[in-house]
């Protein structure tokens, strides 16, 4: 048993301005954590961690600006609180999104490309190897060698991981790619998750599948940083 399990669970919030926030709330509930829905700055008080969910990054960014949430969330990050962005949330965390003009938190040393795989017709599911699970989660949680099934919806990808951040998952296909399938060829070697100290970013949606290992990893970050 992990020593942190004897502590009270971390207090975690889910940014609930727009998008698939309730799915994260339910995922955390499965793990015995009651998450707080965050719509205004005062909702952040006392939290050990925050999830920024999938949704439309432009809409969420504009709502964060309108309700004065950008600076308080940056302050949380500076205080070492755990922050995890999924899909749109990852875009908001990135320092570089290729010059697109939209509000960002600009916290992580990663370069992200929006809608990197194409339109909805190119949304997909794929299995990922995530070595961090085996290293960092207790045996009961990690089920060694078992890939993480990930859902990508109009997903961004991580073009570049800067020196401050580390890659934690990539899609790697090895089979031959036929003519006219350049999208799939491009996907052969693509970084889709990264971490930087107290910050976690995934291009896909762990809240849409029953596998809770990413949520466990995040809770561990939130616990460890208290």
């Amino acid at each position: 048993m992990d020593k942190n399990n004897s502590k009270t669970p971390p207090k975690v919030g889910v940014l609930a301005l727009q998008g698939a926030f309730i799915e994260h709330v339910h995922a955390l509930h499965d793990l015995g954590v009651e998450a707080k829905e965050v719509r205004l700055p005062e909702d952040l008080a006392g939290l050990d961690g925050l999830i920024i969910p999938g949704g439309e990054s432009t809409a969420i960014g504009k709502l964060m600006t309108r309700w004065d949430l950008i600076e308080p969330v940056k302050d949380m990050a500076a205080e070492g609180k755990a922050i995890w962005g999924t899909c749109a949330g990852m875009i908001l965390l990135a320092k570089d999104i290729g010059g697109l003009n939209q509000p960002l938190l600009s916290l992580m040393d990663i370069k992200v490309r929006r809608n990197a795989f194409g339109s909805q017709l190119d949304s997909f599911e794929a299995d990922l190897e995530v070595p961090a699970f085996e290293k960092e989660l207790s045996d009961r949680q990690s089920t060694a060698g078992h890939p993480f099934h990930a859902v990508f919806i109009r997903a961004p990808l991580i073009e570049k991981v800067g020196p401050q951040a580390e890659e934690i998952a990539r899609i790697s296909g090895e089979k031959e790619v036929g003519p006219g399938l350049s999208q799939d060829k491009q996907r052969q070697d693509t970084i889709v998750a990264a971490r930087q100290d107290n910050l976690l970013a995934t291009a896909f949606h762990p809240e849409l599948t029953p596998d809770r290992r990413f949520h466990q990893l995040f809770l561990k970050m939130a616990e460890g940083l208290r």
Partner: peptide, 13 residues
């Protein structure tokens, strides 16, 4: 899952 999932991402919007 990706078809329903996109609609899930539009929720609250």
């Amino acid at each position: 899952k990706t078809k329903v999932g996109l609609a899930q991402m539009l929720k609250g919007g």
